[in-house]
Nucleic acid binder design. Structure first.
Lengths: 225, 225
DNA sequence: CCAAAAGTGTTAGCGTTACACCCATGT
DNA sequence: ACATGGGTGTAACGCTAACACTTTTGG
């Protein structure tokens, strides 16, 4: 076995957002280099003295202006690029509230935009594979851990939550049963507050409390949708 | 952001085996370098023109002499080592039948041995974290995909399979219910053969057929233990 | 009043759980 | 005979799926 000398190690972020009940993904159009003019996943490089998670968070901050977003590594991908140099990329997925961040193209991008997950343009390199892998990861994870709330406002209705799952998992759910399932978990905390200015009966607003989840976990509770 | 120049990118393999109903892990004792004399995960480097999966498979082959083992990447880990150089490692886990491979220490190891998962010695670097992560990954995966068979002989009894799950998940299962669950899946193929030379009623031998699993999947079947 | 969404109630059926029990075989 | 594991039966329970129904609100 020989020592590898890599050209570089990069970060690729699969950034998910939600528009109503439609799952969106944030892409950038590259302004320089071999892939100029094509859409791809936003990313960055890993600084020499930087934790890889920190590098991913920094790349995410540069693009969205938001910190403390839900961000998790899901896999490393290797490929040999056009110049026959090995490129290694570590892929993360993030959950973002689109309305609460100020998207700005970085130096090397000429455009940034949200795309419906069902209408993604051709992507550079192996980014389509990375996206598909990240989406599968999200679909699995969101059913087994209460992370979906990161895509919703702090206060949300049960219907919003249901539409989130319907949008991400691409299924339709029975409203009464979904409500019962959620409320029976004792995971959601009522805000004792109602929706405002809607043209129908106002729904109760709920919030997700990580502390409640912690204490339920200690009692052996397992989140499943 | 600055360009990273890594000292190296390595592979770490978390290699699982089964001894009866006890989950085992394969460790090496390092013979050279800063970690001489300590136990750690076996690994290797990534060749320049090598797929990262191939690099992991090669490292596994060097150690076990076996090919085509179950091997899957689960995560990349970054750390800054003693010389303040960044080290990046990509971690894989493998499932092995201990009796069907010839373990041999490579050049840089003075010993190789199986350890009970509940009795692992202190490990170098961040290998304990990697091991824990890999174990959690295995425990999850083995419940949702039929990969456990890679730890058993081709032909096995239902009790062996049950003990596999009990050992890996560290739970005890009800025998009648486990049997029914497995047989009702129609996933296992009877070999029309019985155990030989046992001091009790001989059990039926079964095998796992990937083709059967494929066809069940097409009908929407989902494997869960 | 109507539309739209919030909520509640009810039932059949399925799967899991827990445990009792009989069967076959080598020592 | 007995220990050991193979293998079957069954009843209670809880959860889910499916759908009918009532309630509240703005237009």
């Amino acid at each position: 076995m020989q020592t590898a000398v890599l050209k570089e190690v990069t970060i690729d972020n699969v950034i998910f957002g939600l528009d109503g009940n439609k799952l969106q993904i944030l892409l950038v159009k590259h302004a320089i280099g071999e892939s100029k003019g094509s859409w791809g996943l936003p990313g960055g490089r890993i600084g020499m003295n930087q934790d890889i998670d920190a590098a991913a968070a920094a790349a995410l901050y540069d693009l969205t202006g938001a910190r403390d977003l839900y961000l998790e590594q899901f896999r490393a991908f290797g490929r040999v690029d056009r110049a026959r140099e090995r490129v290694l990329t570590i892929a993360y997925y993030a959950l973002v509230r689109p309305e609460s961040c100020a998207i700005a193209p970085g130096e090397s991008a000429e455009a940034v935009a949200w795309f419906d997950i069902k209408d993604v343009p051709p992507l550079i390199f192996d980014h389509r594979e990375i996206l598909d892998f990240g989406l599968a990861f999200l679909r699995h994870k969101i059913r087994h851990e209460p992370i979906g709330f990161n895509l919703l406002p702090d206060k949300f209705t049960l219907l919003q939550l249901q539409e989130l799952y319907e949008g991400i998992l691409d299924v339709s759910l029975d409203k009464p049963n979904f409500r019962r399932k959620m409320t029976k978990m004792n995971l959601l905390v009522s805000c004792n507050e109602k929706q405002q200015g809607v043209a129908h009966r106002a729904a109760t607003l709920y919030r997700f409390d990580p502390a409640v989840y912690e204490s339920l976990m200690e009692q052996g509770f397992v989140f499943v949708v």
